[in-house]
Design a protein around this nucleic acid. Structure first.
Lengths: 202, 202
DNA sequence: CCTACCGATCGGTAGG
DNA sequence: CCTACCGATCGGTAGG
């Protein structure tokens, strides 16, 4: 087999171990407060070893963000692939996004603020990956506006919706009174107004 | 006068200079990436001098957050003191909160995430100050729900609204196409649904 | 991927 | 509030 040639080809699984640990620690403690030693220890390496896989701490952040965004976008696509009705589609997307944020190990949107530690070129790459993540949302919001369920789908609407969702890690606790499904429903209700059969409550 | 006694009483104005500079730098670069030397330089002091006014860098963060929250709460109260109609009241509060976040030098809510650098006791004090900031919001949301303009005023509604607003510093640019008044209007419209005369567009 | 190490920086203090 | 300084830590590298 093509194994163990000259300078030992970097092991892809160790690389992704580092990325997962880095993402988790960056979210937990912040980019600056996380040391490369923390990351190394989290995967059972010694202090200098992460630099065998990544040129710098910044490159770890960049790779973790882009990988996390791509994985999240994939989950998003899978969750709403077969749903034609815009409202049901939005509900599925909100639920999938909350899942990305709150129950997966790819909480890339939470790291958006940490990109200030990166250079402009890297920030631009991450912004592009984030645009790809946001694109399906705009499509769905446009459909809701076209069917009259939403007053407007102008850009601020999408950004305000993202804010609503991306702030949840600040307060949501999985052991609290609200399930993720209930939270997703509350978000959609807030966006689209009360459910159609509002006559019940009067 | 009672001036220049023995160990020189700390000058209150220098103290608040430090707090303002610290708040701005903490928002800009993050707590960990901001050095106490940065803060000293911003007010024309030498490296060790901030520690004449504050015991530690953490104490600077804590004081900046609590001071910023109190000042913001005061501005909030002033903005909606005389408004009885719940919808107009909410609009004024949203506008005032966006002002706190985006045009004042007390962007305390943006620093909430940085409190992870503090000990539990300090975090609890900050949480209490933040509760005082949130209280008038709940009152207004309850009034809107009672008048039927909002489907629910359960706690998640307030938290989702705060998320919508607190995320705006991530994307809003004061030199962009949207004024703060327009942004505030868009937020309220998203919350309460389209304005009453929706028949115009059909 | 480890050992050993370096230069730089940082929070904080002493002593005035 | 300044000068001078310390101990600790950190990102990163050499060399294998």
């Amino acid at each position: 087999m093509a194994r163990g040639r000259k300078p030992l080809p970097p092991d892809a699984s160790r690389r992704s171990d580092l990325l997962r640990a880095a993402a988790r620690l960056f979210v937990e403690k912040g980019f600056d407060a996380t040391t490369t030693r923390d990351i190394a220890e989290a995967v059972g390496m010694r202090a200098g070893s992460p630099f065998y896989h990544f040129r710098s701490k910044q490159e770890l952040l960049k790779a973790a963000m882009i990988g996390g965004l791509e994985a999240g976008a994939e989950r998003l696509r899978a969750a709403c692939a077969d749903i034609a009705d815009p409202e049901a589609r939005l509900r599925a997307m909100v639920r999938a996004h909350l899942g990305n944020l709150l129950e997966n190990e790819c909480p890339a949107p939470m790291l958006l603020g940490e990109t200030r530690a990166l250079e402009a070129a890297d920030r631009a790459e991450i912004a592009a990956a984030f645009d790809r993540y946001q694109h399906p949302w705009q499509t769905t919001l446009d459909a809701l506006a076209a069917s009259g369920k939403l007053a407007s789908s102008a850009p601020p609407v999408r950004l305000l919706l993202f804010g609503m969702l991306n702030w949840t890690p600040q307060w949501y606790r999985s052991d609290g009174p609200l399930t993720l499904d209930q939270l997703a429903a509350a978000c959609v209700e807030l966006l689209l107004g009360q459910p159609p059969d509002r006559s019940v409550s009067g």
